[in-house]
């Protein structure tokens, strides 16, 4: 084929080597292909019991990918991409029903990691990863906007509860509260709602001006390097503020 492709077989092979751990190899080998996972999966049930949707098929495809190594081809990768991102939410329900306890979420995550090596990641997830690196959150919210939002929510809340505050970077607080970046972006009221709860419960809490987004879409994208960086942001905030607990938003 003379066409220029974006495939990088060398990188794919490296990714295969990097991702092949003992659990994965064991799981992909011992899967008895019994099909008992089929009706535990919402993709299978919601798509008129399309057998191609069952969890074990994801295992089969990842095994094929691992075996292909640098023989990876465009056609395979395209199908693989849609399966691995579009037909598994890594909810782990099937694992509870698998006699061997094969963890399809880990297998899917590996599959996504292989896609990452080819830059084949859903556009919107790619954008969020770039945003984490630039702004520390998935929604491209600047620190200024973040603090403005918190202050605005504090004012809103104080109209009803004059004593309530949204403490920012309060060192030594008991609880560091972190949010999903969708909150300041789409649901700012969530923040005043939680502030009200903390105020009424008499909690000693704070929010961080830096590490405050507790989502980690890089993990779902399969980009584990980025995922480690992102979780470090909140960890750094927690250590800097010397809090005892980090609370994750609803």
């Amino acid at each position: 084929m003379a066409e220029v492709t974006a495939l990088d077989p060398k990188k794919f092979k490296e990714a295969v080597k990097d991702k092949s751990n003992a659990r994965l190899k064991m799981w992909l080998e011992i899967c008895a292909h019994c099909g008992l996972c089929a009706d535990t999966c919402h993709f299978y049930l919601a798509n008129d019991k399309d057998p191609e949707m069952i969890p074990a098929v994801k295992g089969r495809k990842v095994l094929e990918a691992l075996r292909k190594k640098d023989k990876i081809d465009e056609e395979f990768l395209e199908d693989f991409y849609w399966t691995i991102y579009g037909e598994c939410t890594m909810c782990r329900r099937c694992t509870m029903f698998c006699p061997f306890g094969i963890d399809i979420a880990t297998i899917t995550s590996t599959g996504r990691g292989l896609c990452v090596s080819q830059g084949k990641v859903p556009e919107n997830l790619k954008k969020t990863i770039a945003s984490y690196y630039e702004h520390g959150n998935q929604m491209e919210i600047t620190q200024e906007e973040w603090i403005d939002t918190l202050q605005w929510m504090e004012e809103e809340l104080q109209e009803e509860l004059p004593g309530a505050t949204i403490p920012i970077d309060k060192k030594g607080a008991k609880v560091l509260y972190t949010v999903n970046a969708r909150e300041p972006k789409f649901y700012p009221m969530d923040i005043s709602q939680v502030a009200r709860v903390f105020y009424l419960a008499g909690e000693d809490w704070t929010m961080s001006s830096k590490g405050w987004d507790d989502t980690n879409l890089a993990m779902f994208a399969g980009d584990l390097k980025a995922a480690a960086y992102i979780s470090q942001l909140v960890r750094d905030a927690a250590e800097e503020l010397e809090v005892r607990r980090v609370a994750i938003t609803e």
Binding site: M26, T95, M96
Partner: peptide, 29 residues
Amino acid sequence: FTKLSHFLMFFFSRAVTGMEFGRRRAPSW
């Protein structure tokens, strides 16, 4: 050399997943 090795690997696989679910306080059965 085949999936028949599950006669022994079953125990390894179950152990690994049992602990992974267990640390999240969920049963894997």
